[in-house]
Write a protein that binds this DNA or RNA. Structure first.
Length: 453
RNA sequence: GUGAUUAUAGCUCAGUUGGUUAGAGCGUCGGAUUGUGGUUCCGAAGGUCGCGGGUUCGAGCCCCGUUUUUCACCCCA
């Protein structure tokens, strides 16, 4: 036998059945996005590395897939560069393109580059794969689809509300029980300010993000290991232990953060958002979670994360407000807010809960059995007529044994088979067999049409 | 990047302390049945036991390396 073929680690093939299931997810999400006035764009799979590098932190740069320059990519190198064994330096010489790591940064680039063609506020959605050179594990792939919705060019908290409504509606349609966790980067900044460790905010947020997983003690350990004073950690404790309803938490926070202007701004933003959500009476539970920090550092306001309640998997949707993402591409003063649905994780959740609708519209409805030349010439026009009427129809392309053709229909779960031989042709009819009941009857094409519709 | 874990037929997996010619189920193909699928029965094809090296009279099984799978950490959808 020849060498066994394989695909790169962290990637997956999808069969027709799996694609039908995935398209159900994509279509559901798309429908909701459109309902709120978002328009689709696409960007290239690859971007210039200069666009991607430095936008996701040091860790992110490492996880970028880089594309080797074409041609003799070593020709311009000096021996020193080649033998220097400095991967970072060498990379810039031999690779100038990379696969996109997310959809937000390419979108920011898109906005800057196409600002003459779009009018603000710009509401776009984008459903495309992204690639990360991570080690794959549960719910983590190296190629996966994100479904992003963002609004740029509007500071209004109404946008946050609509994104929450979209989350609510998407998961209602997909029948997945979720909780929406929400936090505000300004509150986190306020906390850092209060405890006097503003420059350590990233370390602090990364640590408290793990609260769920490792518990309070370990979080304190990790924060201490980052060189934060005991005094500051002591001040942090009441915040980490915050409990009660969202309103109660906000009230407590107002007291704790009374000396921090930015912190209070964050609290008031969340109050507004919660107020709006309450007025819309959403089905999904929304929870203020201060331990929600999210790694991507460009968030500046609200932060969202959605967790599935019935399946153990990482967050299936996440996002937030970023005040100046386009700034790095030379366009200041454009605020954006957006969220990203992780289609592959949603797919895993749906698979585990088996929540797919039964019928699939992509299915073939009728198969014509092939006997020979004369029968073919009789069947082809009938086939065309059915297709003109919007019926998914096919004919078995070879005059194989009937058993084989019937098995084909059976395996493909085609509900009807049309059998046409001498008898049928003489009468100008077809023999229509219902594969479920096994019954069959001689009928005209018109009868077939009404039967199938 | 760190630590574990896995690899045997197209797929899912057996394979005893190292001992003849490595098995099963499913799938595929052929037949029972040349115009009838699902159920049944009969038969066949299909393997460099991930790859490379080592130990041994002898390795699917033991050792080393490597790749791969899955999981946890880091980080993240």
């Amino acid at each position: 036998m020849a060498q066994k073929p394989s695909i790169p680690k962290g990637t997956r093939d999808f069969t027709p059945q799996e694609m039908a299931n995935r398209n159900y997810i994509f279509n559901t999400i798309k429908d909701v996005f459109r309902l709120y006035g978002f328009q689709q764009i696409e960007t290239p799979a690859m971007e210039n590395l200069s666009t991607l590098m430095g936008k996701y932190g040091e860790e992110g740069d490492k996880l970028l897939f880089k594309i080797l320059n074409s041609g003799d990519y070593l020709s311009g190198l000096t021996n020193d560069e080649l033998l220097g064994r400095n991967s970072t330096k060498l990379t810039t010489k031999i690779s100038e393109k990379g696969l996109r790591y997310d959809l937000t940064v390419p979108f920011a680039r898109f906005v800057v580059q196409n600002r003459d063609k779009i009018s603000f506020p710009f509401k776009r959605y984008q459903i495309q794969p992204v690639w990360r050179a991570d080690r794959p594990q549960k719910g983590r792939y190296r190629e996966f689809y994100q479904c992003d919705v963002d609004v740029v060019g509007s500071d209004s908290l109404l946008n946050e509300l609509e994104l929450i409504q979209i989350v609510d509606e998407v998961y209602r349609r997909l029948k997945i029980n979720v909780v929406i966790k929400i936090n505000n980067r300004k509150i986190l900044s306020g906390i850092a300010e209060i405890i006097g460790e503003t420059e350590k905010i990233t370390d602090i947020t990364v640590a408290i993000d793990k609260m769920d997983k490792i518990g309070l003690d370990k979080v304190n350990e990790e924060i201490a290991s980052k060189g934060i004073s005991e005094e500051a950690i002591a001040k942090l404790q009441p915040i980490l232990k915050l409990s009660g309803t969202n309103e109660e938490k906000l009230t407590q926070l107002k007291t704790v953060l009374s000396a921090s202007e930015i912190g209070l701004k964050g609290v008031s933003e969340l109050e507004t958002i919660f107020g709006l959500c309450k007025a819309m009476s959403l089905a999904t539970h929304i929870e203020l979670d201060l331990t929600l920090a999210r790694g991507l550092n460009y968030y500046t306001g609200a932060i969202f994360e959605v967790k599935a309640l019935d399946v153990e998997i990482g967050s299936i949707t996440g996002g937030g407000r970023y005040d100046n993402l386009t700034g790095v591409f030379g366009m200041d003063g454009v605020s954006g807010v957006g969220i990203s649905f992780g289609a592959d994780r949603i797919y895993d959740v749906l698979n585990q809960l088996d929540l797919y609708p039964e019928t699939s519209i992509e299915q073939t409805q009728i198969l014509f059995v092939s006997f020979g030349e004369a029968e073919l010439m009789y069947c082809l026009p009938l086939l065309k007529e059915l297709r003109n009427n919007g019926i998914n129809a096919e004919i078995y392309p070879e005059s194989a044994k009937m058993k084989k053709q019937m098995s084909y229909a059976d395996n493909k779960k085609i509900p009807y088979v049309a059998i046409v031989g001498d008898t049928e042709m003489n009468e100008g009819k077809v023999m229509l067999k219902n594969m479920k009941t096994g019954q069959q009857s001689l009928m005209t094409l018109e009868d077939v049409l009404t039967e199938l519709k």
